[in-house]
Design a protein around this nucleic acid. Structure first.
Lengths: 387, 387
DNA sequence: CTGAAAGCGCTTACAG
DNA sequence: CTGAAAGCGCTTACAG
């Protein structure tokens, strides 16, 4: 008996009703527990609409009306009900309400490569964690909660992972089964970046990966690049594929063989040597004088590897990243990046998801904010003077 | 009619049933929608247990038994039901289930200073976003989803914010109303860091702020500090108050007047000049030769300001941070930090929350992992040689 | 103005 | 082995 008692002394930390006579809760509800049970013990530990009704001497219907401002209730009655409800600490159950409307006021953010994120250190997950934080906040401002989930199609996912009113899926893969499942279940969703194989079929926020890539390629070109290489991730999402396509078109327009390499996002900085080996070991005339890495961690690794090999950055080789990681701002040299402004994207996504959840139309087209070019030392052959 | 049509061409992106004759969904459920409605239109857009029962020619009870492996169902019957259920894409409603058990399989992470986080850039929210990411993952591994919420006591919070099975509250304030509310509602929760005014009353993961502070102060002392100053945040949480207390005791044990300054966490790097002004403008004999900032952003700002004033770091002044921000690893000089290992803390918190949600006892005491001292240039008077 | 009844989609004794 | 009934906590026509 001792162990459980110790545990249950923590206030309501466990589900056991507290009945020991000597126990007097410090933060008890102001009013005694609603009667109906001989000794004031509540069944579920939480007052229901019936408890309020009983205490107010009315029917549950009237309580519901009063508390929701629906129907017609005499003023005094309504006020009395409200007072009693707050006295006994009544809060309507979101679950019971949800059963009616099949809406919980819950949104879900599906971070597609969640499990492949090998670390939650900020250099690893900059973009996604910024989206997650901003999306949670935006959701709350609109009266929704946000859950973060991985892959709701995996066997054994919590049923709650399927209980959101609408979903935001970031960077879906080609023919992403998550989208297939959501659409089969007729669950509303919006994606950040299209499913590359099903463009236009679903609501999606256009990231214009190609456009953003061109922004960077133009910058590299102005910075002196004649021959550009691109390092993408291996996930088959719109960002990787769209950027790749843009580089290929750019190269072909200049009569050059495209230099592209895809390496796993999760390997981060480690890919540095492999990238340099790949581009610098073959035909010297095919060597790039600029490497554009889609992820900031890849760019950091490549910068490191280049310098270790005696390749000067930016003098011999320009390096840039398509999405900034923190260390790109402080590395030596600092690395030019695109700031994708994930906070803004998150807000757009939440707005769309809320609209869908409420059955309202979505104002299309949905477009991600234009990325901001953050020019740093790695692409500045004339020395950068700090202001 | 045109606008809405355009919108609804997106697959189920809106809640309107698709009835235009020409429309043929690409990813329709394999089997036709369950009958019961003349034209195969489903009411809620989602098959229910009744639909399965009807299609299988059995009662809902039997479907429930078969799908949950409860009761006794003939093997063939069970198999047929399972087949049909998956054919029509049936998934049990987490909401309806939740009504029974008052459990949704949902956890909530309350990041106490969520709104005061002024940015989701990684240098601002390192610690909390690492917790959030790791907690979401840990929760999923245990069959729960995790929502990120701010303050569930604010008026107008989504009811869903109150629907979690258990809560994790990070860095509660003194007499935190969130804890009061949760305990009044008898909702189980665990805190990361105790409520300083109600220590021991609730389940909480002990961060040993004082212990961690002493680790750093010992290091500073070994690094040559004679007179240490502490910069805390202004939130009245255990981390700030416990560290403050530790510095005071440390100073008094040495017969020194404690040098402590509290500045808002959200002001980040901006506090640099104020800190230097405060400690360096008065009596020269009261000047610190080491400044310990609890947040990495404060430390970054102080380092900057010191150097601008011609104070050399580490020669004249040692600087350290109680929780690392990314830039501390790459600034000039790099700054010594404590890595609080939030991923580990998150896992411990999730385990406890799951136990509470399931009515199981929590293995106390709950202790945060020991922080790791990451010694860098800002506290290394002998030059650091990279390996 | 108020309340009895039905129903949201499940589960769970309980009776056949 | 199977199913009718009651109930989880609400809301919503509908009848008084």
């Amino acid at each position: 008996m001792l162990a459980p008692k110790t545990i249950c002394e923590k206030r309501f930390g466990c589900n056991v009703s507290i009945t020991e006579p000597g126990f007097s809760p410090v933060f008890a509800p102001i009013a005694p527990a609603p009667s109906g049970y001989p000794d004031g013990v509540q069944r579920s530990g939480r007052p229901t609409i019936k408890d309020v009704a009983r205490a107010a001497g009315v029917s549950p219907t009237t309580v519901s009306h009063a508390l929701n401002g629906k129907g017609v209730v005499r003023r005094e009655t309504a006020e009395r009900i409200e007072r009693i409800a707050s006295e006994i600490g009544y809060r309507p159950s979101a679950i019971a309400r949800g059963l009616q409307s099949s809406r919980l006021g819950l949104l879900a953010l599906v971070i597609r490569p969640f499990h492949s994120l090998d670390t939650f250190l900020p250099e690893g997950v900059d973009y996604f964690l910024r989206i997650a934080g901003a999306a949670s906040l935006s959701a709350m401002e609109r009266g929704y909660s946000m859950m973060l989930i991985d892959d709701p199609t995996r066997p054994g996912v919590p049923p709650s992972a399927l209980a959101a009113d609408a979903y935001i899926v970031t960077e879906p893969f080609e023919n992403d089964p998550v989208l297939t499942m959501l659409s089969e279940q007729r669950i509303p969703f919006v994606t950040v970046g299209a499913d590359p194989a099903r463009r236009g079929l679903f609501h999606s926020i256009d990231e214009s990966a190609g456009q953003q890539a061109r922004t960077m390629m133009n910058h590299l070109s102005e910075a002196g690049a004649r021959r550009m290489a691109l390092v993408t991730g291996t996930d088959r999402n719109d960002w990787n594929l769209g950027s790749r396509q843009a580089l290929i078109e750019w190269s072909e327009a200049r009569g050059q063989k495209p230099l592209v390499l895809a390496l796993p996002e999760a390997e981060g900085e480690q890919v540095g040597d492999r990238v340099i080996d790949h581009f610098f070991s073959g035909d010297p005339t095919d060597r790039p004088d600029a490497i554009f890495c889609l992820t900031g961690r890849h760019a950091a690794g490549v910068t490191d590897a280049a310098i270790r090999r005696g390749i000067r950055v930016p003098e011999d080789l320009l390096i840039a990243a398509g999405s900034g990681a923190m260390q790109n701002r402080t590395s030596k040299p600092t690395v030019t990046t695109l700031d994708l402004r994930p906070e803004q994207t998150a807000q757009i996504a939440v707005e769309a998801a809320v609209a869908l959840a409420e059955g309202r139309p979505v104002a299309e087209p949905l477009t991600a904010p234009e990325a901001t070019l953050e020019i740093r030392e790695s692409t500045s052959r004339a020395p950068v003077h700090a202001p």
